[in-house]
Design a protein around this nucleic acid. Structure first.
Ligand SMILES: [Zn+2]
Ligand SMILES: [Zn+2]
Length: 755
DNA sequence: AGCACGCCGACT
DNA sequence: GTCGGCGTGCTC
């Protein structure tokens, strides 16, 4: 007698017990379980229900069935099954990032398409239907009775619904409350139904194709890329184009050609705020067979967009990092815009780099992969220079607009001259001038440098989170101190130092601090603050930028590249504050990211109708990185940077891997890390041709997080199959010595210094 | 990671 | 005698 077995990997595993577990497939699930199926399994002592993914199905004889075999609880519907392509991407993620099977599965399927466990009549089953975001829809179903005499709200409701059903939200906006509506439902005048809440934010964009006319230089780039787009083999290229050189129009022509060839296109952008402009461009040019994938969509919106892609109803997909997994068939072109942005690297498991996944997909689909940037990653440019990528360049600014003038403001001199403020005298003066002339200004703050913390005025003690070794951050609205890592809250604000009893001062740095200074220096200026807090709503970003464009504000104060890719006619001044902490931050990418930021600020600056200027506040105005950025000299920067990378052994001359160790007791964590390093060295020595340097163990930047101690080893290596096999051997040896109970291991292949 | 099983101290 | 301390080991 034989029986059917499913090999499955469970949810919420970690690297130390993420393996394939065998389950019996019960008769009622026969024919419904295949590789890629999502199933519900009993797991652990208490046989608690967990989601799992099936990776293999097989038949074995009853006699050699594994001992202690359990039976699947349930399976998700067929439409939730991972396609062979998605399974291949799951395998790829696991192999390259050392994540668990299920972490990889969760990365390739949007949240809204993931089935969850449920309990029905005390039995563990898969939920019958995916959880959706819904809203209530009211429809007119009968006449309003004459008596009792209907109220004015009721009459208004019926009148509003005369032309068709409306949602609760739409009715609320015209002043008709839930109570009125539900009263009418009870009377039988209206019916209510739950419908999917999916706003098509872009429904209003008209199909209005403009001729795509290329400049001679743009045409040359297009011509150079075309053979590789039309070829049936995979290709990869880098489009290095200075800011304002019109990369987007080249994208549009390439997409147009891709569609003509009967193939599909994927466009990746680094952040959600850049999707609307890209969608607008694409939709007006190519029409509505376009789908979007990013994390600001709700469950339903994501699911609907994903289904649209899966069913072949989208020819173009636009999205952020995770859109690289969009299940487009017959993919001919992948564009990764602003490829230098760090947001293409995932910071939580699976810690993948979208560059690598995009390369993998281009190979799977025989597509052209195009990285585009004004300031490419040093690794990317090096790959292009050494012939691994095709290199095409746009060197002319479109429309011939001049670059803004760039000035550095020496903040040491500022302090010496007696100005303790965050805003320099010169910047304040120029802001005032802009205000007087009716022109607009943008101020960019580096987030890291701008947090307000509590510090003792007597002994200098900084108030820290009791669970994590990080300073607590002052939040004005709640009048509280918050830990940005674990959420620990201290309220009310401590006034005295726990160390010496001195007075605590909260006059540190911060967006709010700058805002206060500006209010004081420029009374009457209308300041728009854009940061994580103020832009959390889905369309807030767009709304605020539109307000700024209409000149409803004078100064835009942003913590990120808020104004990326946008042209504001009246912006003639851009100020950059807090760049020093970025410049001197740890991590081998520090210079690269500062160079990219300043280059973009300067490159954007000259886009207004009026001549522009950029003011950069720094304590090191002569720093070569700043000078090269001001001159828009990417190649000069690259030559310096590649020399540094070669000399100090950093990527692209090695792979940089951080191995993290996390556990309850500091000593044990350190010992485990040290032992891992020793094991790794021993195993490496037994193999030929494994270049490897092991640094550490050292405490991580954030030594304690959520009451757990964190140490790291830093590896400089060649990340090939042999090296990854070595890591697996080392992990096995680590497990065999029962070290996971001292510290669990996390691997990060795209860190630039810490986890 | 959870979670049970197990073998030693202080409590009725 | 037993209640519970968290050390140890397993998860199909
Ligand atoms: Zn003190
Ligand atoms: Zn904390």
């Amino acid at each position: 007698m034989s029986l059917l077995l499913a090999q499955a990997a469970v949810n919420d595993a970690n690297i130390h017990f993420d393996k394939l577990y065998s389950y019996r497939i019960p008769a009622e699930l026969a024919g419904r379980v295949f590789p890629g199926s999502m199933v519900l399994v009993p797991f652990g002592r208490g046989s608690k229900a967990r989601m799992a993914v099936v990776l293999a199905v097989g038949e074995v004889d009853e006699s050699d069935a594994p001992k202690g075999l359990k039976t699947l609880y349930d399976a998700a519907p067929e439409d939730a099954r991972l396609t062979p392509d998605l399974l291949e991407l799951v395998r790829f993620l696991k192999e390259r990032t050392f994540c668990t099977w299920f972490e990889a599965v969760k990365a390739v399927i949007p949240y809204g398409a993931q089935y969850r466990p449920a309990v029905v009549d005390g039995r563990h089953v898969m939920q019958g239907r995916l959880t959706r975001s819904t809203e209530r829809l009211y429809t007119l179903a009968g006449a309003l009775p004459e008596k009792p005499k209907p109220g004015p709200r009721q009459l208004a409701a019926v009148a509003a619904l005369q032309n068709g059903p409306l949602t609760a939200r739409q009715l609320d906006e015209v002043g008709i409350s839930r109570a009125t509506l539900d009263g009418l439902v009870k009377k039988g005048v209206l019916t209510a139904a739950e419908q999917d809440k999916a706003i098509d934010l872009f429904a209003a964009i008209p199909f209005d194709p403009q001729p795509l006319e290329l400049s001679p230089e743009q045409q040359q780039v297009f011509n150079d890329l075309l053979p590789n787009l039309e070829d049936a083999r995979p290709h990869a290229a880098l489009l290095h184009g200075v800011t304002g050189s019109g990369k987007t129009i080249v994208f549009l022509r390439l997409i147009q050609r891709t569609l003509e060839l009967g193939r599909r296109a994927l466009v990746l952008v680094p952040e959600i705020s850049l999707t609307p402009q890209m969608i607008r461009r694409l939709k007006s040019t190519f029409g509505s067979r376009l789908a979007v994938q990013h994390s600001a969509l709700n469950n339903t919106e994501r699911l609907l967009q994903w289904r649209m892609i899966q069913q072949g109803n989208a020819d173009i997909v636009v999205g952020t990092r995770s859109a690289v997994f969009a299940p487009l068939q017959n993919l001919g072109l992948i564009i990764m815009d602003e490829e230098q942005e760090h947001t293409y690297q995932s910071e939580s498991a699976p810690r993948f780099d979208a560059h690598d996944v995009a390369k993998k997909r281009a190979v799977m689909e025989n597509a052209l992969l195009l990285f585009a940037s004004a300031t490419p990653l040093t690794e990317t440019y090096h790959a292009a220079e050494s012939g691994k990528l095709q290199l095409v360049q746009l060197t002319h600014r479109y429309g011939g607009r001049p670059l803004p003038s760039v000035d550095f403001i020496d903040m040491r001199a500022e302090l010496a001259a007696g100005n303790p403020r965050e805003v320099s005298v010169r910047l304040a003066r120029e802001l005032q001038e802009n205000l007087d002339n009716g022109e607009q200004s943008i101020l960019l703050l580096n987030r890291r440098g701008y947090r307000t913390i509590g510090m003792c005025t007597t002994c200098g003690h900084v108030l820290k989170c009791p669970n994590c070794s990080v300073p607590l951050v002052y939040h004005k609205p709640q009048q509280a101190l918050l830990c940005h890592h674990c959420g620990h809250t201290v309220h009310p604000l401590p006034q005295t130092c726990p160390e010496c009893g001195g007075k605590i001062s909260y006059s540190g740095f911060g967006t709010q601090r700058v805002e206060e200074e500006l209010a004081e220096l420029l009374p009457g200026a209308r300041i728009l603050r854009m940061d994580q807090d103020s832009t959390s709503r889905k369309d807030a970003h767009e709304t605020m930028l539109a307000q700024f464009a209409r000149h409803e504000y004078d100064i835009l104060l942003g913590t990120q590249m808020v104004a990326k890719g946008l042209d504001f006619e009246k912006v003639t001044l851009v100020g950059v504050l807090g760049i020093d902490s970025l410049l001197f931050g740890q991590g081998f990418r520090a210079y690269e990211s500062v160079f990219s930021l300043i280059t973009q600020v300067v490159g954007r600056g000259g886009r207004a109708a009026l001549p522009g200027r950029a003011l950069i506040q720094t304590s090191v105005p002569d720093h070569p990185v700043l000078q090269l950025a001001a001159a828009q000299d990417y190649k000069g920067f690259y030559r310096e940077e590649i020399t540094f990378r070669r000399f100090s052994l950093y990527p692209p001359f090695c792979s940089f891997v951080v191995v993290g160790f996390i556990g309850d007791q500091e000593g044990a964590v350190f010992i485990a890390a040290q032992r891992f390093g020793a094991l790794l060295g021993q195993h490496a020595a037994q193999k030929p041709n494994i270049p490897l340097r092991i640094l550490g163990p050292a405490p991580m930047n954030i030594t304690m997080l959520n009451n757990k101690f964190r140490y790291k080893l830093t590896l400089k290596c060649r990340n090939d199959a042999a090296f990854r096999a070595l890591l697996h051997e080392t992990l096995d040896a680590y497990d065999a010595e029962k070290l996971p109970q001292k510290a669990s291991v996390i691997l990060d292949f795209n860190s630039d210094g810490d986890l």
